[in-house]
Design a protein around this nucleic acid. Structure first.
Length: 510
RNA sequence: GGCCCGUUGGUCAAUCGGUUAAGACGCCUCCCUUUCACGGAGGAAUGAGGGGUUCGAUUCCCCUACGGGCUACCA
């Protein structure tokens, strides 16, 4: 490699929600770019007009922004290498395809979809379930290799639909280096004559990646392992164009697998097993199908990317909680795994809990405030600043703040009297009646004062304070959770405390 | 079927020929706490199988098995 700057790219297709694996690919790109003080480019691969989904591009940008891994260049942030949408670069691909034809490395093919299907049918056998358009069959097909040149010219003049295919050399060993997997060798006999330019004039992925990676001066190319089988086509193309010395270094990332069973993780698995697969909520504009995102599920972006980084990579130290800055500092391609990793939602939630625990109240406050508002709880900054530290270690997801905080704002609706009734007796009833009236005389309403009167009253009534704390908790919170009861009584105030106790005493007396 | 990639506890994983095979999640027990969490102390649980190479293999090589990916005018 030359001493040129590091330039990497994340190149998604705008076809739907942004999958976990996609975010991780973007993350690794981002980490590598920042570690090497290079640039991180977003390129939109929208060459398949049939699969294009409006809104998906902006959604991808929003997801990356939310994750804190925004690109340096992209359709939303023009740099010196635009345009960053492949559909807008259409004209340049044709030129390169024609160059390949002139050099004898590609050819025009006029076969109709029906003709291709017929070819597959005739060659299909038990030994060869999926016949390819390759060196063995191309001379029997309808293309510029099998037709006189004047006929080819005539067909093209008439506007006959045609594609451009690469002419794979026969029986050639092709070797390239992968930064994660080392040396990888293919025999060209195994790869078919891939379509380079489609009938609609759009390039396929194969032509577009090579041309764009070259024109955008990409130095390192990260992509999913599913691309490995077509890598020889790309390597060959770099060679044919005469750019081989500028070819990016490849890194084929391991896949993220289903938690159960096998295969790569899909959005269906999320629906099936009850966890998100997309970074943020995504609603398909055509089907209106809605898929939940990690963001809306209550994940902190810090936790989300931390979790993703640890799926297929680690720094060898045993540490697991890393900020984005720490990830940049410690990231290394050598420590990326070769094998796929099964996604574990439980572990993902643990990462989030760790991040909630470690986050400053000021970080959490606006997020919690927004979630509460959605649940019809208007909470001031002052109050939340006071309450968040009390409950944050009890929350795995940001949404958990709702039940953990709700009883500070309104009387519990559901009251778990079942936990109290079995051991409830008149003695306790009298205790609470008595204590409620002594509460009225407390001058400085604070946690210590409340706790003191409670313990004194308990001693007087000859009941262990512990036996009374659970009932009190149920009265104030409605259930068995939350911080110390006296902390809660202090925050909700004297009036609410006595009201909630009285209400429960009435219920228990029935 | 073919090709390519992979394989350490249930899951994420450390080890870069010599260790009692780390650590984390989850699970279980106990402590703290008469709530829920947090925290602390323990526990169960791992090198797919078979051949080599080597004084010595989880580690290197080969075979098998298993898993995954690809095999579209989708990316």
């Amino acid at each position: 490699m030359t001493a040129s700057t590091t330039r990497v790219r994340f190149a998604p297709s705008p076809t739907g929600g942004l999958h976990l694996g996609g975010v991780r690919t973007a993350l690794f790109n981002y980490l590598f770019a920042h570690k090497n003080k290079g640039q991180f480019i977003l390129r939109i691969e929208d060459t398949d007009q049939g699969r294009f989904v409006p809104g998906a591009e902006q959604y991808i940008i929003d997801c990356l922004d939310w994750c804190g891994i925004s690109p340096d260049e992209g359709p939303h942030k023009e740099g010196a290498f635009g345009p960053y949408r492949q559909s807008e670069r259409k004209s340049s691909y044709k030129k390169f395809a024609e160059q390949l034809i002139e050099q004898g490395h590609a050819y025009y093919a006029f076969d109709t979809p029906e003709a291709l299907e017929k070819m597959r049918d005739t060659f299909r056998s038990e030994m060869n379930p999926s016949p390819q358009y390759d060196s063995k069959v191309r001379m029997q097909m309808n293309n510029s290799l099998t037709m006189p040149s004047d006929k080819v010219a005539a067909l093209i003049d008439q506007g006959t639909p045609h594609v451009v295919r690469i002419k794979m050399p026969a029986s050639t060993e092709l070797t390239f280096q992968d930064m994660i997997r080392g040396e990888i060798t293919f025999n060209t006999d195994q790869v078919d004559d891939k379509v380079l330019l489609k009938a609609d004039g759009m390039p396929t992925y194969h032509l577009a990646v090579v041309v764009d990676d070259h024109e955008m001066k990409i130095s390192h190319a990260f992509r999913g392992e599913e691309w490995l089988p077509s890598a020889p086509v790309h390597v060959l193309l770099w060679d044919y164009f005469g750019w081989k010395d500028q070819m990016p270094q490849w890194a084929h990332l391991p896949l993220i697998l289903k938690p159960d069973g096998q295969g790569k993780l899909s959005k269906r698995d999320g629906d099936r097993l009850g966890f998100p697969v997309f970074a943020m909520d995504w609603q398909d504009p055509k089907s209106n199908e809605r898929n939940k995102g990690f963001k809306e599920m209550g994940f902190l972006p810090e936790a989300f990317i931390n979790m993703l980084a640890m799926l297929g990579w680690n720094d060898g130290s045993g540490d697991e909680i890393f900020s984005l800055e720490q990830l940049i500092e410690r990231f290394s391609i050598e420590r990326i795994h070769k094998g796929g990793a099964k996604f574990d939602f439980e572990k993902a939630k643990w990462f989030n809990q760790e991040w909630i625990k470690r986050s400053e109240t000021t970080r959490l406050l606006p997020l919690v405030q927004a979630i509460l508002k959605k649940n019809d709880i208007e909470a001031s900054e002052e109050v939340l600043t006071d309450i968040i530290p009390l409950v944050k270690e009890r929350c795995q997801l940001l949404n958990d703040f709702v039940p953990q905080v709700a009883y500070f704002f309104h009387d519990p609706v559901e009251i778990d009297l079942g936990s109290v009734q079995p051991k409830w007796d008149e003695k306790k009833q009298l205790f609470f009646e008595g204590w409620t009236s002594t509460l009225q005389q407390i001058e400085t309403w604070d946690t210590a004062a409340i706790e003191n009167t409670f313990k004194e009253a308990a001693a007087l009534a000859q009941i262990k304070p512990g036996e009374l704390q659970l009932p009190l908790r149920i009265m104030l919170v409605g259930a068995k959770f939350g911080p110390t009861v006296f902390d809660i009584a202090f925050r909700i105030g004297k009036e609410a405390t006595t009201r909630r106790i009285a209400h429960c005493l009435t219920l228990l007396a029935q």
